Computed example of a mutant assay.
Amino acid sequence: MVSIPVDRMTLREKLEIIDLLWSSISSENSEEVSPRWHGKELDRRLKRVDTGESVFEDWDVVKRELQELSR
């Protein structure tokens, strides 16, 4: 296991590490990055959208509604 002194790193250094890790992960075999069950769950959720069980809301509308609730 690699030990990285995260508590002594600057925010910029932490973000650079995240970027390096993501670049490395995204170039690997997609099955290892995204397990099969992720695909099955996405299919399940898409079916719920198709049947009307789940719906999408416009993000700007949702934000506006939340702001009104907090007043």
Rank of each mutant, 00 (worst) to 15 (best):
V6P: 00
K47V: 01
M1V: 09
G39V: 01
V55Y: 01
L20S: 13
P35W: 04
T10V: 09
L66N: 08
E13H: 08
D43K: 03
V55N: 02
E32S: 05
R8G: 06
N29W: 08
T10E: 08
R8F: 10
V49E: 00
V2H: 03
K63I: 11
D7S: 09
R71I: 15
V55C: 01
M1L: 10
W59L: 09
S24K: 14
T51G: 02
V62H: 03
E31W: 06
S23W: 09
N29Y: 07
S70C: 11
V62D: 04
E31N: 13
L66M: 12
D50K: 09
L42V: 05
E28S: 15
Q67H: 11
L15R: 15
V33Q: 06
S54R: 05
V6C: 03
R44W: 02
W22Q: 15
K40H: 00
E68I: 12
V61R: 10
S54T: 05
R44P: 02
E57L: 13
P5D: 10
N29I: 07
L21D: 06
V55P: 01
V33E: 06
V61I: 12
P35Y: 04
F56R: 09
R71C: 13
V2C: 01
D60N: 11
P5H: 04
L15C: 11
R48S: 01
K14Y: 05
E65P: 02
L46K: 04
R71F: 13
E41K: 06
E53D: 13
L69C: 09
R71D: 14
N29R: 15
T10D: 08
P5R: 07
L46I: 03
S26T: 14
V49S: 01
E32W: 04
D60I: 02
D58C: 02
R64P: 00
L21Y: 11
R64F: 10
K14D: 04
D43S: 07
E13I: 05
E68Q: 15
P35C: 05
V2L: 10
W22D: 14
S54C: 05
E13F: 06
R48I: 02
L69S: 14
V61G: 00
M1N: 10
E28Y: 08
R71M: 15
V2N: 07
I17Q: 13
V62T: 08
L15P: 01
V6I: 14
S3K: 11
D58I: 04
R48G: 03
H38L: 07
K63D: 10
K14M: 15
K63T: 07
D58M: 01
D58L: 03
V6D: 01
L46W: 00
P35E: 04
V33N: 05
T51Q: 03
S26A: 13
E65Q: 13
K14W: 07
V6K: 06
